[in-house]
Amino acid sequence: MPGSGAAAPRVLLLAPSAGPGGGVERYLDAVEEALLAGGATLTRLEAPQPAATPATTVASQLAARVDFARRAAAAARRLGRLDALVAGHPDLVKAAAGAASLGGARRVPVLCHGADIWRMPPADRALLSRHPLLRPVTVSSFCAGALAGPRLARLLPPGVPGAWRATLLAEGSRRRPHAPVPTVLSVFPLADWADKGVPTLLAAVATARAELGPVRLVVAGRGPAPGALHELLSAEPDAELDESPDDDALARLYATADLFALCTRTRASGPRPCGEGFGTVLLEAQLAGCAVVGPAFGGSREAYQQGVTGFTPSDESAAALAEVLVGLLRDRARLTRTGRRGAEWAESVTRPEDHVRAVYQALLDSPPVTSPDPARPPVAAAAAAG
């Protein structure tokens, strides 16, 4: 048994506020689940979500960060010597470094997910580069390259929380007849619609309609959706918006779509950098049996098998995306076969027991204390720090 006779590792996880939802939350949920399944004693401390109002000031945001850093340090001191203090987002790097110094921790992995790498303030980047305990951990080779300046990063590709994975696989296993009109689906936090390439997707779908006839477009994700997105989609034929679907509804959207498309723009500089570090939604769509189209650039090519379970446009233009969409939507039977291959591949690369071992190696430099049981997902909950 891996780690037999070893003491349970003690881990404090600093998690960002819930924010707009999406891959970061799923990523952290899977990490937390894996740590528990491998036998760790885990305490989670979640940063408060700032009030998104015009009255929110820079001073109040700074005060909230200082208060969270204080609470993180208090939790670390109370828990004693930690095997790992995990910062779940680069925004928490200062709080993690301070808590580790005051409370004691053997290592401080900092989880970096994508666009947050380019948006990291220079002071935080310098801290990540120089602090002896901090070590970046990221989701793809693309992101590891972006972090090569601060420090060589370890790779920990996303896992999928057990219950959510089971829901997706079950929904995808249901055989359904083709709907009369093919459906293209895109899922992302709705506030990020511009960075996620919605205008380009709309233009590409319009080209597909001109060549093939009616094509339904569904945009879904954590809301509320900005008014500009409502206006954009309401002006389009056969375009629908699904705000904050629950997991059952989201799994059905994945399983009933003919094709999933994620069109994230990649900008590593400028006033608002953006990019896709991995694209967990691509894995989710494949688990539900849906073929996928990923962004032209970024780290998403590690989220599917190019030409087998998913496809990539040659660039970020609407013309390049339309070429891929038209080629795939012409043959819906082929898309169904591609989706089935995607489900088989995604199931094989998201097995919980494999993710447990990967999490322990990346974050703790050790095997799990207890052998992960693929038939029994963990039911214990992490303790919440006060």
Rank of each mutant, 00 (worst) to 15 (best):
L152D: 12
V293S: 01
P374C: 07
T264K: 06
C290I: 06
A380K: 00
H89N: 04
R125N: 01
Q61C: 10
A288N: 04
G162Y: 10
S186F: 06
T56Q: 14
A333F: 08
P136L: 05
A72D: 14
A100M: 05
P273V: 11
P121I: 03
R77I: 06
Y27K: 00
L201Y: 08
L14A: 10
V24T: 15
L35C: 02
E25M: 00
P90L: 11
V218D: 07
F278C: 02
L102S: 13
G342T: 08
W164A: 08
V215K: 07
A343F: 05
L217K: 08
D238M: 08
A6H: 13
E33A: 06
R330S: 11
T57W: 02
A84Q: 03
F68W: 09
V359G: 00
R130L: 15
R341N: 08
G21E: 09
D373T: 02
L232C: 08
L190I: 04
P109L: 11
L233T: 04
T43C: 08
G114F: 01
P109K: 13
A99T: 02
T336M: 08
G294P: 07
A239H: 10
A322H: 01
A384F: 00
T200L: 04
L328T: 06
K196W: 12
R176Y: 10
L36C: 08
V324P: 12
A288F: 05
P180F: 13
C290N: 09
D365E: 15
G104F: 10
P16W: 13
G5F: 04
G80Y: 11
R119S: 12
W164S: 04
D124H: 14
P374V: 09
G213T: 03
A206Q: 09
V110R: 10
G103W: 11
P9N: 10
L217A: 09
V326N: 07
A105P: 03
S17D: 15
D354P: 01
L28V: 02
M1Y: 01
G213Q: 01
A249N: 05
D83S: 07
R44F: 01
A63C: 02
Y360C: 01
T338Y: 10
A225G: 02
A362G: 05
T43A: 07
Q305I: 03
L79N: 05
W164R: 14
A52Q: 13
A206M: 01
A7M: 10
R78W: 07
R176Q: 14
R70K: 07
D365N: 13
A18S: 13
T41K: 01
H113T: 03
F188A: 04
A166M: 00
H355G: 01
P122K: 03
P2M: 10
P245L: 11
A95C: 03
T41I: 04
V326I: 15
T256A: 14
R106G: 12
L133Q: 08
L42N: 02
S140N: 02
V58G: 09
R351W: 04
M1K: 01
R337A: 15
F68E: 04
A255N: 09
L335A: 10
A343L: 12
